[in-house]
């Protein structure tokens, strides 16, 4: 403001020089204060971003690094064998319901055979990360999916039972941001489970979905389901973390510049 006034109403040369210096000092002060404010805001943003991803924060640093790269791994033979064996044994106990020594030993033998035959099937493509987080988030995803199924069920019943049958079948395609096959399958099956929409094909990360109506198609187009599935399998987290890291590098350079 003051600079503007100076440029608009010039006075004598001697006075001008003294005024010039003070004004420039003031202007630099202002600019510096604005920069400081921006920096404080940015640091706050960074803090909130890290707090948002704090669930993935408590993993070890090494795992965090691999997550940042979005890496996939195949578990080693022994590990997957043991995990498969334990899961199959639990399944056997659930089926059998008899806990005497004879039946349990039968279960152990059968689980060993099956685990030997197909231990590499179950964990062929596991995303690096903590399994407990995935299980917890998946359980939290189910009620939302049930609510979605029930509401769209009523809508499809209304469409089918109304005498004019105002359907508008259409096929829509969208690229997905999900990365692992298991998350593709969860998303595709969630779409198919929801009445009114059916997944036809996944090819080259592109979903082909048949929708019964414009409204159901629009509901799918918002991408809420995809976001939630991405949240389950921690697929989007590493993108956010990458964003934060990029921003922090820029801030470091800004700081050095100041």
């Amino acid at each position: 403001m003051r600079l503007c006034r100076y440029f608009l109403y010039p006075t004598q040369p001697g006075v001008i020089e003294a005024m010039e210096v003070t004004l420039f000092i003031h202007a630099a002060d202002d600019a510096f204060r604005i920069l400081e404010n921006a920096k404080a805001q940015a640091v706050g943003l960074l803090d909130t971003a890290t707090r948002l991803t704090s669930e993935t924060r408590w993993m070890e640093e090494k795992k965090l690094q691999t997550i940042l790269k979005g890496a996939h791994e195949t578990r080693s033979g022994i590990q997957s064998f043991v995990i498969t064996f334990v899961m199959l044994m639990g399944f056997w106990a659930l089926l059998s319901g008899k806990f005497d020594a004879f039946h349990l030993s039968l279960g152990v033998i059968c689980s060993l055979i099956v685990a030997y035959l197909s231990h590499d099937l179950l964990f062929a493509n596991v995303r690096v990360g903590d399994g407990r987080v995935i299980v917890r988030r998946f359980l939290a995803f189910i009620p939302w999916l049930l609510r979605e199924i029930i509401t769209s069920n009523f809508y499809v019943a209304y469409l089918a039972l109304s005498p004019k049958m105002p359907i508008d079948p259409q096929i829509m395609r969208f690229k997905t941001k999900l990365e692992s096959d298991i998350s593709w399958v969860v998303l595709a099956n969630s779409i198919t489970l929801t009445p009114g929409t059916v997944t036809i094909d996944i090819a080259d990360r592109e979903f082909m979905v048949h929708a019964l109506d414009r409204k159901t198609a629009a509901g799918l187009d918002t991408g809420e389901m995809e976001d939630r599935v991405a949240h389950i399998f921690m697929e989007a987290d590493h993108i956010y973390i990458q964003d934060v890291l990029d921003v922090s590098r820029i801030f470091a350079e800004l700081k050095r510049g100041m």
Binding site: L88, I113, V114, L121, D181, V185
Partner: peptide, 19 residues
């Protein structure tokens, strides 16, 4: 992909169920 992944997860449990 869907059929493949579902089969991959199903087959061990299917075999155990058969046994």
């Amino acid at each position: 992909i869907i059929i493949k992944t579902i089969a991959r997860i199903f087959v061990p449990f299917l075999q155990l169920y058969a046994l």
